[in-house]
Design a protein around this nucleic acid. Structure first.
Lengths: 197, 197
DNA sequence: ACTCAAAGCGGAGGCACCTCCGTTAAAGTG
DNA sequence: CACTTTAACGGAGGTGCCTCCGCTTTGAGT
């Protein structure tokens, strides 16, 4: 809120070296654990494997969502980064469809955190600029482009799209049906196109 | 499935009186607890309040979902029961829209169990004939009617609709935005209508 | 009425979550 | 290099989830 140099509040010390090290180790261990997980991961197990106390884990990541998000955010670039490329190569509606497909594929690889991501997203607990905002911004870019080209509706908010995608990802995460995912994405596209060309 | 008097499988004893009584008490207490809940409800608290051991609760309802579903199912009739009426009074597409609105309103009152319902539905854990099937059947009825009248697409599965509704309900449950719910439902309707009349 | 198989009960126990706070050691200070 | 400050550590502890199993109660058969 207040103006700041971007570092830390005036008078705050730089973070200690061991703190940075521990935080890093935790993210590494968590990334591996989430990737390998078939089920929900034990945070105490992550702390143990990282060689720190459970208290340290919770200081760095006050909630499970915070840890999941830290891992998730690091890999999100590949999804948000391709928007410009897609828009350059494809008309807006096709770009939107392609982007949703990529996002779906990305989410599908995140089974270990799916439950947490879902709960966190829906409840707004995952709401930092680094994740939710980036997704919303990516969608907004494509929507704006499509609205200008009159191939996508102009009265749709980015959050409307994420709401629909959320349901699709959750529903299709349970049953292993890639073709249902595709079908649903096509369905959503039909809803998002300009009704009267 | 098999022919039966409707009681129980051959050779099985009738359930004991105390078991029925406890089961009933648990549902009553749980209904009140879920309705009053702002947060997730403690199952041990429900057992305590019902005057039974935690073991008894878990025997009757092996998972949290089972208990939530038992409460939920009892109140679901008002949603599934109005399909015939809606179809009689309205054209299929309008009936579908109206029905989705009712369902949304119903879900909105279920905040206390929202988290559990969501998780259970997405993971397929809530999958008994008494809930998921009933919703699916309700949607299927309307879709079939609309497909015959050529006002709704014929290539949409009921589960596709539930997937979209799931996302809408979850997203709008976080932020109190009834108008976003309505907008999203309209959006979904556009997707479900027959594209070329 | 009496018997007794088994349906049903309840809580101890193991695990995970998360908080709180006494202790440790990193980074400034003289 | 001592010394001080305090960020950071780590784990004990309280709560909730869920399972397992020895004890109690029910009710069908005689």
């Amino acid at each position: 809120m207040s103006s700041d140099t971007g570092k830390k509040a005036r008078g705050a010390r730089a973070p200690r070296a061991d703190a940075l090290r521990n935080r890093d180790t935790l993210i590494q261990v968590a990334r591996a654990a989430f990737a390998a997980a078939t089920d929900t991961v034990s945070l105490e197990g992550i702390a143990r494997e990282a060689g720190v106390g459970i208290g340290t884990l919770y200081r760095h990541f006050p909630t499970r969502e915070a840890l999941v998000e830290a891992v998730y955010a690091a890999e999100l670039d590949e999804v948000t980064g391709c928007v410009a490329t897609l828009l350059a190569e494809l008309p807006p509606d096709a770009a939107l469809r392609a982007w949703m497909g990529r996002y779906a594929a990305f989410v599908a690889t995140k089974r270990g955190m799916a439950e947490t991501l879902r709960a966190g997203w829906a409840s707004g607990r995952i709401a930092t600029p680094s994740t939710r905002e980036r997704i919303t911004a990516a969608i907004a870019t494509i929507l704006a482009s499509g609205a200008q080209a009159r191939s996508l509706r102009g009265d749709v908010a980015p959050d409307d799209v994420t709401a629909l995608l959320l349901g699709i990802f959750l529903s299709t995460a349970a049953a292993e049906t890639p073709e249902q995912t595709e079908r649903l994405l096509d369905l959503v596209m039909d809803a998002l196109r300009e009704p009267i060309p």
